[in-house]
C-alpha cells in the first residue's frame, strides 16, 4: 500500500555542499554565458567574412572582435572571482591535464586572445588603421608587422578563429557535461547545446550593433537556425533524462516539474527560444523592420539557460537520489 520510504539523516553540514551542493554561484554562469557569447561571435564573424569574401564595412562590425576580447576578459574576471584561492590562479598555466576540461578551457582561452586580436586587426579599415597607428606611438613598427601578418594570412586566421570559437563554445558545455556526479549535466549533448546557444547569443549580440543590411539578413537566418538546433538539442537532453532510470528522472524533474521549472519554461524555452524564433521568421518572411527586443530576448534566454543548468545541475547530486 505505502510506497517505499527512505529517510536519510545526515550528520554532514559542510558549507557549500549541504544540504545541496551550491559550490558554484553566479560567477560560473556569467563566465559560461560570456564564453559562449564570444565563441558565437568568433564563429559568426569569421563565417560571415568567409561567406561574403568581404570584410565588415561598418565601424561597429570592425570593432566586434575587440569587444569580444573585452567580454571574454569580463568572463575570466568572473571565473577569477569564483576561485577560492585567487593567488594560485597561475597554477592553471603550470600544467596541462588532459582529462580536465577546465585545463583545456584555460589553455583555449589563451589562444582566444591572439586569434581575436589578429582577426580584429586584419579586419580594420584604412581609416581605423591610421587612427590606431597614431595612438600606439612607439609600438608602431610592431603593429605594422602584426598587421601585415594578419592581412597576409587572413583566411587561415578566419578558419582558426572559427575552430577556436567552436572549441570554446563546446568546452563551456563539456565543462559541465563531463561531471558525471551531477545527473543533469552528465550528457554528451551539453557541449553542442552550449555551442548552439553560444552561436545564437553571439548572433543576437551582433544583431544589436549596426551592421550592413546584408550581414544583418544573414545573421538573422543563422540565428534562427541556431535557435532551432538549440531547441532540438534541449529536447534530446530532456528526453534522454526522462526515458532514463529513476535517478535521471529526478534530474529531469528539476527542469520539468520542480524548483526551476517556471524559470526554465518562461525565460528559456518560451521567452528565450520560441518567441525569438517566431519573431525572426516573421522578420525574414515579411521583411519587417528589425527590433532590438528579439536579440534582447535571446540574450536573456541564453543567460537564463546557463544559470538554470548550473543551479539545477548542482541540485542533482548522486547523494540525493533514492
Amino acid at each position: 500500500m505505502n510506497p517505499q520510504l527512505v529517510e536519510i539523516t545526515h550528520g554532514r553540514t559542510n558549507p557549500g555542499i549541504d544540504p545541496v551542493l551550491h559550490a558554484w554561484g553566479w560567477e560560473v554562469p556569467v563566465y559560461l554565458f560570456l564564453g559562449g557569447l564570444v565563441a558565437g561571435v568568433m564563429v559568426l564573424l569569421a563565417a560571415l567574412e568567409l561567406k561574403r569574401r568581404a570584410k565588415a564595412t561598418t565601424p561597429a562590425g570592425q570593432a566586434m572582435p575587440f569587444v569580444a576580447i573585452g567580454l571574454i576578459s569580463l568572463g575570466m574576471g568572473a571565473l577569477f572571482l569564483d576561485l577560492a584561492h585567487k593567488v594560485h590562479v597561475y597554477r592553471f598555466y603550470l600544467s596541462f591535464e588532459a582529462t580536465s576540461p577546465m585545463s583545456w578551457g584555460a589553455w583555449i582561452l589563451m589562444i582566444v586572445y591572439p586569434v581575436l586580436l589578429l582577426q580584429g586587426l586584419g579586419g580594420l579599415s584604412d581609416g581605423a588603421r591610421g587612427w590606431l597607428r597614431a595612438k600606439v606611438g612607439g609600438l608602431g613598427t610592431l603593429l605594422d608587422r602584426v598587421q601585415a601578418f594578419a592581412d597576409a594570412k587572413r583566411r587561415p586566421i578566419l578558419w582558426t578563429s572559427m575552430a577556436v570559437g567552436a572549441g570554446l563554445g563546446v568546452y563551456t558545455g563539456l565543462l559541465l557535461g563531463t561531471l558525471s556526479a551531477r545527473l543533469l549535466w552528465n550528457s554528451a549533448v551539453m557541449g553542442p547545446l552550449f555551442l548552439a546557444s553560444g552561436v545564437s547569443t553571439g548572433a543576437a549580440l551582433l544583431l544589436c550593433v549596426k551592421l550592413d543590411h546584408e550581414a544583418h539578413h544573414t545573421l538573422v537566418r543563422w540565428d534562427t537556425l541556431a535557435i532551432g538546433v538549440e531547441l532540438a538539442l534541449l529536447a534530446v537532453l530532456l528526453l534522454g533524462l526522462v526515458t532514463g532510470g529513476s535517478a535521471q528522472q529526478v534530474a529531469a524533474d528539476t527542469l520539468l516539474g520542480g524548483r526551476y521549472t517556471p524559470y526554465f519554461w518562461s525565460l528559456v524555452v518560451v521567452g528565450g527560444l520560441a518567441v525569438p524564433l517566431v519573431l525572426n521568421v516573421v522578420e525574414m518572411r515579411r521583411g519587417l523592420r528589425p527590433t532590438l527586443l528579439t536579440p534582447a530576448l535571446v540574450l536573456i534566454g541564453g543567460f537564463a539557460l546557463r544559470t538554470l543548468v548550473v543551479a539545477a545541475g548542482q541540485y542533482t547530486s548522486f547523494g540525493l537520489m533514492p
Binding site: 518562461s266 525565460l267 518560451v270 521567452g271 518567441v275 519573431l279 516573421v282
Partner: peptide
C-alpha cells in the same frame, strides 16, 4: 505577466 509581455510583443511585431 511575463507571458503577457511576450504575447504582446509577438502581437505587436507581427
Amino acid at each position: 505577466v511575463i507571458g503577457v509581455f511576450l504575447g504582446g510583443l509577438l502581437g505587436a511585431y507581427t
